[in-house]
Design a binder for these strands. Structure first.
Lengths: 150, 150
DNA sequence: CCTCACTATATTCCATGGAAGATAGTTCTC
DNA sequence: GAGAACTATCTTCCATGGAATATAGTGAGG
């Protein structure tokens, strides 16, 4: 029988280190953190993205997301425009500079990911991993569990 | 072909939420964070554990580890005793209260882990996940990559 | 044995996230 | 259509981790 505690430890340590390597490259080549890259990727990937949408997608609080968007806006990569549906909220979008940065950083990110996620596994093992993790994520999200306060 | 970016996103979000659920239970029932639980588990699992060993195992910096141990020591769960091999370092150990707490918290942790990691997957899928993640972790560690500065 | 490079830990400063509260806008009810 | 309840975001305060630095202690040469 598989030791859950061991799998948990391996998962967390793998991810911590993966996050670190990805961050090193993004930082060196584009001046970005992994978190910022993911903000840009999600904002760039959907029209009419609100702070709330971003927070749910990233699984952090709305407050923290709001602050993160402040920083990206100050850097000139993201803009808030009024939401015509609801005057309380803004719609987020990439600026031209933000889009260019995302386009430049994406190959860097994908290369590292290939090296440390794709290459070590057989295609079949990678597919199985992808399916398992998608299911596990879905299980938690369907149960609406592990959400931060926001 | 499997989308690496999607697997990465699922991995990170799954873990974030898993960490949150585990933390909620540990906090509610034992007044512990997941990080503290892992400190206790590792310290309790090896004799003669040094700050450096703990830092490498957890994949955070030595400085952060030192501060974490300070907090556990202040709480009365961990003790530093002089390392007879080397006067610069201390050996860490659980106090009686720390051991009791770890023993009490372990079943809580394992139950949640079973619910959100073991139960959703078939035994075979869990084994495959365990093997894949162990290999991925090992790949990064063998390459000595993704280590924080410490 | 002295000095220098190195190692183990501790400490300081800064950035980021969570929790809770504040604000403004929206919706539901009567 | 006025007020209560709710929602979306922002803001403030606090805890934790990284990076850089400080402080001992150790070991290798000469």
């Amino acid at each position: 029988m598989t030791d859950h505690m061991q799998v948990f430890a391996d998962l967390v340590r793998y991810e911590t280190r993966l996050y670190n390597v990805l961050g090193e490259r993004l930082r060196a080549q584009h001046g970005l953190t992994v978190g910022q890259f993911e903000f840009l990727r999600i904002i760039g990937g959907r029209d009419d993205c609100r702070v709330n949408d971003l927070a749910h997608e990233i699984a952090i609080t709305v407050g923290a997301t709001s602050k993160g968007v402040d920083r990206l806006e100050a850097a000139g990569w993201v803009s808030r425009r009024p939401n015509p549906q609801n005057r309380r909220s803004s719609l987020l979008g990439l600026t031209e500079a933000g889009r260019a940065l995302l386009d430049a950083a994406t190959p860097t990110f994908e290369n590292e990911l290939r090296t440390w996620l794709g290459d070590p596994l057989t295609p079949k093992a990678l597919d199985q991993l992808a399916a398992a993790v998608a299911l596990l994520r879905e299980t938690l999200e369907d149960a609406r569990v592990g959400m931060p306060t926001g």
